[in-house]
Amino acid sequence: MEALDQAAPKIRLDGISKEYIVPRTGQRTLAIADVSLDIVQGEFLCIVGPSGCGKSTILNMIAGLAEPSAGTVAMDGAPIRAPGSERGVVFQDYALFPWKTVRENIEFGPRFRSDARLGAAERDKLVRHYIDLVSLTGAEHKYPHELSGGMRQRCAFARALANEPEVLLMDEPFAALDAQTRLILQEELLRIWGEDLPRAERKTVIFITHGIDEAVFLADRVAVMSNHPGRIKTVMDIDLPRPRRESLRATSEFQTLADEIWQLIRREAYEATIDRR
């Protein structure tokens, strides 16, 4: 099992760059420059960095929604060219289908995906499992606009999980929530991810955030990015014991790690707030 980790990464980013051409002015802008990163099976990786450093672009490229201008993105050794059900995404604004109920949103993937669709009975079992898992029982027949922010987030999470992807990509999923809900959902995310499971049975998670505390609390490793263009500054190992609980935040190890990351991005985060470009 452990050998599998060493042998081949689950996701490999190899020297990727992304260049934009601003449509109206024709300016070329380099959003990401020469990013290389290996993510192993069962790993929980957080990417933190100031706004506009290209975190989301990296995630979109792994999802297959965007292509790098240079370099390759590969999963299990095969280059990624298009979105696929083996990589699930939880979007920042949730992107729930307004015309589908909670239940219909969650069964959307298994029901409509191109390959390996499930029959009604199987779907029913699957959906019920995930509705219970994210504690949405009782809200199955509500429409997204009838849900609170936290419940929408749970629904989006369950929709991604119900498609049973190997890799879960999360793009600032808790950014739109209030602080208390965020703390609760962080712990629940770890529970659902399966902190107690052996690594080979966990899902690989790539989690974008600008919350340093959030990254340290959740991740096995934190990739710290810098701005203009986006590069990976450092990848830090977070050797805090699992399962992690709320009390961990008060420990000095946690504080030290968080502070270390903050010092790395502080200057650029400040610059981003007064950016005049």
Binding site: L65, G84, F91, R113, N163, L169
Partner: peptide, 14 residues
């Protein structure tokens, strides 16, 4: 919302 189409694509929908 193009986000919805992206969401469907990441779920592997044709």
């Amino acid at each position: 919302d193009p986000g919805l189409i992206r969401a469907a694509r990441t779920l592997g929908v044709g």
